[in-house]
Design a protein around this nucleic acid. Structure first.
Length: 764
DNA sequence: CTAGGGTTAG
């Protein structure tokens, strides 16, 4: 994928010049001595580049209050309002506003427009509107300022209404006003209205300039109409940097990062100089496709243009490094930053969370998660306050680590800071409790939500399904439809998996049809996987195999491994062998596959084949997967290897485990021997004891260290073996504890001798 | 004024 791009020249062509992005106004403009200068100020409406350090505005403000306002020049308000804007202070703005009214300056439409702008930026649209209504007349700038205020304060309906008022009042919209109206349509999520504005633009023959083209580009992009968005961009005759940046980000927002990057290359070849916005957009798209090489070249470009100290750029780069798995580079960049913004911290946490997601190996995934939690506690110690982004990322890390105690602490912090009211944070919370095995607390959190999105509903349905509570999952699905929320492909994965695990074949197949016909959702691999698994668990291997053959997709690894597992319990060696062959062509030399195959022959009593498989494994030098288990207690995560005698307290721990085993045996537990690939070559045994498997050690450790009756939660790097699964059921009865084990495939929750997977898991 | 960095479900 990466190689298809033309490489970007690190040195920009000589014609590119630095933009003067900081312009100083002559100080005389602050205190115009006559009316003409005041008018010139009106023209230079954009005063955002004024150097605020020029005057002590606060002093000016208080002296203005003391002296009364008669002495003040009209344009003295400009720096005062500038300062209000800078500080975002409503109370200061009200003082200035009072002065404006007292001195009769409210007749001046420039000062009044500015006041509208300041109130809007402070988030107070009521006052902005009051000021606007008091104006003697309104020009295009006044209207635009008001409309922009509405859009930026998430009141797009008011913006559209304002646009209509403007037409009724007899003002003609400028291109700029139309661009704002289009943005209002974007945030209103109304493509229909946007099309009407587009028609208006065409009907009244309004010149198609960059501001309209850019707005149309982002409008269509938000509605996932990339083609229309790019058309809007192409039609702009004089494309500016913003046009290019909008078009590039439109590609990225529509999952066409590669196309966006090609546009970037085109932009460079047209000698348009990117600014820091463009470069950060490009970096985020490098992130999407993990194109680190281009990212590094962008880094060099940034250095060339002097943007590389920009905090936003650095945050993007940091995230890119993490997404590409370059922890070392990310660490160096992070340490070298003189200032960490909240986004820096969030990028660090989310980056590690992303690495967890994309790391196949559960061992390194957990290490990433532990590091993410470390970063989070450093953030808390730094005195900076986490926000909703932090909370949702950290909660997702806790859920993947099955770290309930940390998750509870984050929950408490989210309540205290008020961020739990955010729908994303509370959805993450639901997911955390579900993944940590507490479906009760997840549903409590779900009920307490004031608004629920599709993701909130889907998370909860998934939670019920994962805990084997199929009826509740399906009931919630009905409730969701009653609430008017339209299910998507992911929701149907959960629903199908609930039906299939409940063994409700005809219902599952019906919903598979309904999904396609009624909801127009194209089935993806995961939907087929649910149905295939259903046939496997029901022991209908022929049906499963036929279903696989009918699919439009190449079967995935998990389909084949589940099939082998089904073949083991049914003794169908023929299909099992075929599945193993297929699986090995997808994952050559995969030890798990050989183990499943060997277990299948072992169950069928075909010992000759068992030793044949073992021989192949030796010849091919197939190594056992790293088998680790973790348990998190308070703020520490403890890890265990099988037969690990390195732990300082290991002899005590082994003793406790052996006690537990003999107690379980009294209840009827029989230890199974499983096929092991020995790590020492000289070991000749085909079977080996399963007693010291890592999850058994981790659970024993948890039983000792955690308070009485506290649930035990363990994460395991590989598939659990059948013996451990069986043993843990006995332990849950013996100790009366709830035990949750997340293995490389799924979640198992053991309560009172029963597992939530209903023994339809896949075991080694 | 329009554009940019970080979040949730299988």
């Amino acid at each position: 994928m990466a190689s298809s791009f033309p490489s970007v020249a690190v040195t920009p062509s000589a014609t590119l010049k630095l933009q003067p992005h900081f312009r100083k106004y002559p100080p005389t403009s602050y205190f115009p001595t006559d009316k003409s200068q005041s008018i010139s100020l009106q023209k230079s409406h954009r005063l955002t580049h004024l150097d605020p350090s020029y005057l002590d505005y606060r002093e000016a403000l208080s002296s203005a209050k003391e002296e009364g306002l008669e002495d003040l020049e009209l344009s003295f308000y400009v720096p005062l309002l500038q300062e209000c804007l800078h500080k975002g202070s409503i109370s200061d703005t009200k003082i200035v506003h009072g002065h404006v009214v007292k001195t009769g300056t409210h007749q001046d439409i420039f000062v009044m427009s500015f006041l509208v702008n300041v109130y809007a930026k402070c988030g107070n649209m009521e006052n902005a509107r009051k000021v606007f209504d008091k104006m003697p007349r309104r020009d295009d700038i006044a209207w635009s300022t008001l409309l922009v205020g509405y859009v930026q304060n998430s009141q797009p309906k008011h913006a559209i209404r304002g646009f209509q008022e403007m037409l009724y009042a007899g003002s003609y919209p400028s291109n700029f006003t139309l661009a704002i109206a289009l943005n209002a349509c974007t945030s209103l999520q109304s493509l229909k209205l946007g099309d009407q504005f587009h028609a208006y633009i065409i009907k009244y023959n309004i010149g198609y300039d960059a501001s309209i083209g850019n707005a149309l580009c982002s409008l269509y992009s938000k509605f996932r109409k990339l083609k229309l968005a790019l058309n809007a961009f192409r039609r702009i005759k004089e494309k500016n940097v913003i046009s290019w940046t909008s078009a590039i980000s439109a590609c990225g927002d529509n999952g066409e990062a590669a196309k966006g990057l090609r546009l970037f290359v085109e932009m460079l070849s047209e000698d348009i100089q990117p600014n820091e916005f463009t470069l950060t957009t490009v970096l985020s798209q490098c992130c999407e496709i993990q194109y680190l090489e281009l990212g590094s070249q962008v880094h060099s470009l940034c250095a060339k243009f002097g943007y590389d100290s920009d905090i936003r750029f650095r945050n993007s780069m940091l995230y890119l490094y993490l997404k590409c798995g370059c922890i070392g580079e990310a660490q160096i960049l992070f340490n070298g930053m003189d200032y960490h913004s909240l986004v820096t911290w969030n990028a660090m946490i989310a980056g590690h969370a992303q690495m967890m997601e994309h790391t196949k190996d559960n061992l390194s995934a957990c290490q990433n998660g532990i590091e993410a939690l470390n970063v989070f506690s450093k953030l808390n110690r730094s005195g900076m306050k986490p926000d909703l982004f932090t909370f949702s990322s950290v909660l997702s890390v806790c859920s993947r680590l099955v770290a309930l105690e940390q998750g509870e602490q984050v929950h408490a912090q989210a309540i205290k800071t008020g961020f739990l009211s955010d729908v994303v944070v509370s959805s993450s919370l639901i997911n955390m409790y579900n993944k940590c095995g507490s479906v009760e607390r997840a549903s409590k959190a779900f009920l307490e939500m004031s608004t629920r999105t599709l993701i909130s509903w889907t998370s909860m349905i998934a939670g019920f399904a994962q805990h084997g509570r199929y009826q509740q999952a399906l009931q919630l699905f009905e409730d969701m439809k009653l609430a008017g929320v339209r299910p998507n492909a992911v929701t149907f994965v959960c629903v199908l998996s609930a039906y299939s695990q409940a063994g409700m074949v005809s219902e599952a197949l019906d919903y598979f049809e309904i999904m396609q016909k009624e909801y127009k959702i194209k089935p993806v691999m995961d939907h087929y996987t649910c149905l295939v698994d259903m046939f496997v668990w029901l022991g209908q291997l022929e049906e499963a195999f036929n279903f696989i053959k009918k699919m439009d997709f190449e079967p995935t690894e998990s389909i084949w491994s589940n099939l082998i597992y089904g073949c083991q319990s049914q003794g169908n060696l023929e299909i099992g062998y075929h599945a193993a062959e297929q699986l090995l062509s997808l994952k050559p030399k995969d030890s798990e596959t050989y183990m499943l195959l060997s277990n299948m022959y072992l169950s069928a009593g075909q010992y000759e084949y068992v030793s044949r498989v073992k021989k192949i494994m030796e010849e091919e030098n197939i190594r056992k997967l790293n088998d680790w288990s973790w348990i998190s207690i308070k703020d520490r995560v403890y890890s265990f290897k099988p037969n690990d005698k390195a732990q300082p307290q290991s002899s005590l721990l082994y003793k406790s485990l052996e006690d537990l085993v003999s107690k379980a045996k009294n209840l009827g537990y029989e230890m199974l021997e499983s096929v092991e690939i020995s790590e020492e070559e000289e070991d000749e045994k085909t079977t080996s004891p399963t007693i010291y498997h890592s999850e058994k050690l981790a659970i024993t450790f948890g039983l000792e260290k955690l308070p009485y009756s506290s649930p035990i939660r363990v994460v395991k790097s590989t598939l659990m073996c059948r013996d451990c699964h069986n043993f843990i059921k006995y332990v849950s009865t013996l100790t009366g504890r709830e035990i949750v084990v997340k293995d490389s495939r799924r979640l198992h929750k053991f309560v009172n001798g029963q597992c939530s997977c209903g023994d339809f898991g896949c075991f080694l």
